[in-house]
Design a binder for these strands. Sequence first.
DNA 1: CTTACTTATTAATTTTTTTAAAAAGTTAGT
DNA 2: ACTAACTTTTTAAAAAAATTAATAAGTAAG
Lengths: 397, 397
Amino acid sequence: MNLTNEIIKHLYYSDCLSVSELSVCTGKSIPKIADEVATLLRDHLLIEDGFAASTGGRRAMRYSLAVDRLPIIISIAIDQFYTAIGIADIRNTLLAPIHTFPVAIYDDEHAFATIIAAAREAIDRLGNPKHCLLGLTMPGFVDSERGLNHSFPSSSPFFNIKQRVESELGYPTAVANDSSAIAVAEHKFGKGRGSQDILVVNFNWGVGLGMIISNKIYKGHSGYAGEFSHIPLANSQKLCSCGKKGCLEVEASLVSVFDAIKAALADGEASHLQQTFQENGEITFSDLLFAFAHGDQVTLRAVKNIMHMLGKGLSTLIHIMNPERIIVSGKGEGFGNDLLPALNSSIQEYCIPRLSRLTEISVSDLNNVQIIASACIAMQQPILIYPKLKHNKLQQL
Amino acid sequence: MNLTNEIIKHLYYSDCLSVSELSVCTGKSIPKIADEVATLLRDHLLIEDGFAASTGGRRAMRYSLAVDRLPIIISIAIDQFYTAIGIADIRNTLLAPIHTFPVAIYDDEHAFATIIAAAREAIDRLGNPKHCLLGLTMPGFVDSERGLNHSFPSSSPFFNIKQRVESELGYPTAVANDSSAIAVAEHKFGKGRGSQDILVVNFNWGVGLGMIISNKIYKGHSGYAGEFSHIPLANSQKLCSCGKKGCLEVEASLVSVFDAIKAALADGEASHLQQTFQENGEITFSDLLFAFAHGDQVTLRAVKNIMHMLGKGLSTLIHIMNPERIIVSGKGEGFGNDLLPALNSSIQEYCIPRLSRLTEISVSDLNNVQIIASACIAMQQPILIYPKLKHNKLQQL
DNA sequence: CTTACTTATTAATTTTTTTAAAAAGTTAGT
DNA sequence: ACTAACTTTTTAAAAAAATTAATAAGTAAG
């Protein structure tokens, strides 16, 4: 990665920075950064953004990215049941509302076509911008280096996903696993900002785990680290898709919340959702959030039980990793801080107090995390492909 | 850390290296290394150690450390019940047999005095060498930076351990937690050589865990990472010292092996150890190893049960960390590869096969690991305090 | 409004790396 | 056995980057 791109990347994550701040976060010397910034300024890729707040000495000039000279970021966020598409400029301003639509991704070719069609439509509506970067995140064992998703057979369009998307849409594309990407998003834009070691739980239809260790994503030796959802924990008899019993996933995911509620409704328990279910034949995620926010007993109980199991899982993580912070993110973030009491009491039960005291548990405050996550992934690519000409080389021309 | 010390350190771990190998492992350029090596050679701190094996081109000169010009390493390895003292030169040749003696380290002042006396005697016998480095490893929450062991009250000599040892013995001292240090030893000298991400289980009176992530020890945000022994796992009713039930430590340590055997003997079960116990009133660790090696049924069963529990713990680690390798080390290493069948079958039971296939489980082949570990810790200090004079500066004199 | 103190920016020097060239060895074919 | 092609280490020269020092720009207290 060249310095130019590195500077742009840091400014993307931090909005605006001074030369000396850039020097610290790139690890390069001040003269080097000053030189590079001057070049970028001359090329109108950076703009001066006023002086920094006073710190007792000469005030530093702050620089930020020139929106109209830098690429547009296209984010595609895929989960088991829904896909969302977002388009934003380099300063994270959405250029159109996020478009979310249902797609079940085991439905291969059709699912892929639907997603591509939706993306193309969104891009068309913006007048087919030329200079774009695309980031795509989805569940499964994703090899970001090669752009493959090994959870799909090689016949599936989702297998060689990077190449397929690039050939369909024509923009440089980076792909990553949803939970890993969400960890990056929380680390750069969410509650994990400034922490070196954080764990991010992707509380979604399943439960994923993304780990940031020493400021970088930890993937383990073969890329499977964070297979948190299948650690042996519960004494339950429910069978997991992996073939074992007692996996965290069957006890602590959004799917299990829905299962618990549906079972209660079938038992005829009183609930706001009883009517919703009869009227619409189904319960959506927003129905669930509404019921939770309005104190529906069945919903509260289901969520509380799930948080108890999740807390047991987090206790194990705390013992092993001693993280600075654990962030509950993903779709389940929508429940907000009301998740914390049940979670903390469970951690209190399963964790040595000396350790649990040292890890802060929080719920994400990022809406549409996976869209932000996809944008972060898009930005992992080279932003400017043609390296800027240096001062003296230019003068020769 | 200056380059001179860095080169010496790499040679300590690798015995002998060529300039280009040193360039790779220090991350410095070849001219820089060549220059530095020339200086060290001139000062007789390095010696030419013949040509490297042919690789198809010009053969490289290999360099190794000059034993008599470099410090002697004093290792002090403390565990709950025993302490061992080893003294070796910079090429890891023992200068005297390792002296092991029983000390219970909760017995503060007396225990400390015993250890210091033994160390002083060993040093005396070698004629009080002037240039020494001392490394000390022990259980507890050790802050290596400050040289403190927070598991002891501030009144204990083991609390401000670095300072106390330095003032008693007069040699620069580094201290570390036993399990962390053993992980380093396995990474540098044991089966973890060449791997980037390894987990090392310190199978001792308790069970500890040391983690090497991206070639460096991972301690977590506040230094407590690897508190593996208290993760909630077993359904047993035995109470752990931490106040909880079902901790790994009460089910998977050497202490628990002894407990199981003693219970069986009390029940009158037939065993080689029955006689040993009646004759000596106790069973030593070597009795245990002997019985195990000779197929004593009671011993085999006890060890097998413990390995089953340890395997369950390792399964959790594999899911979360996806390590390249897990090494069972510590005193329990003495059982050798016979530990593996029970361990692997347990991992098979609790782990997703896709994951367990990717992690190799092995038993350490390092005898007296903790002595080697202490030496590694000793070497984390600056080896040469007075920086070598550079070529040109010297010529000015 | 001056003095003491911070901090950013610029300039000069030193260090380090990169690149290129030379030297030393190995292998295989005639 | 000897030469040609190829590898790899070592040395030398050029380029890049980091340190260090100097300067400019700002703040705060008396």
